[in-house]
Design a protein around this nucleic acid. Sequence first.
DNA 1: AAAGTTATTATAATCATTCTAAAGTAATTT
DNA 2: AAATTACTTTAGAATGATTATAATAACTTT
Lengths: 122, 122
Amino acid sequence: MTRQRAAIIKVMRENCGHFTAEEIFLMAQKEYPSIVRATIYNNLNNMVEEGLVRRICQSGQPDRFDRNPMPHEHIICTLCGAVEDISLSDFKNRLSAEIGCEVEDYELVIHCKCSDCRKNKN
Amino acid sequence: MTRQRAAIIKVMRENCGHFTAEEIFLMAQKEYPSIVRATIYNNLNNMVEEGLVRRICQSGQPDRFDRNPMPHEHIICTLCGAVEDISLSDFKNRLSAEIGCEVEDYELVIHCKCSDCRKNKN
DNA sequence: AAAGTTATTATAATCATTCTAAAGTAATTT
DNA sequence: AAATTACTTTAGAATGATTATAATAACTTT
């Protein structure tokens, strides 16, 4: 546990959301001004491997990183582009049963209107 | 419909699979030697917009393009890395019902052992 | 056939991410 | 506590997929 890693964990805990490495870099700089982008990438990659952080990948855009430790899905709003969390209970097990093979991991990204945009429409 | 676009469609029809833009470029070159990468990207982007082709995006790897017009899911093998198709019937409607909002599109990528690797293990 | 639109080409640019090598820090052994 | 080893960070360059730009070519419409 280095100071740099602690700074990254701190800013991700205090600012919950789906951030790009660049956004995390800018936040971590306030905690630890001399930190460098490669350190952000190294730590985020490690954290993804350790299962502390999830990676959300969209074509043509930088990866986003999500601290939420509970398995959950992501909605990308077709109106405003926001990334929203949603949880489908027991999805991994249901999926394993359906395909007849143990799912080790999965990513489900749903494109629909986010809850804010649905509210505003009414 | 240009000759270049026809060449791209032809090689994707004759070589069914999940190809990177680079792989499609190399195949299309055999049909139309003067074709250029930008044309491949332009056409693939258009085809994705038109719904003729699906884009599969994995972090750290180039996007892959998949001609299969039926909605389907992708398995990425945790042993050999191959991309395999799988179809979950009526998944989009089931998903819409579950989240209480009309799903416009979705991507489901499953990490587990592909059917070849499961066979070979036995 | 001229004018206008759209696609292709060649090339350069972008930008997220990784690599390399050196220096620093932490952990472990003596 | 000093010495050795392993790991992390840093700075900066490199990579590589993809897009932008500007010029040319190929269709379409009048």
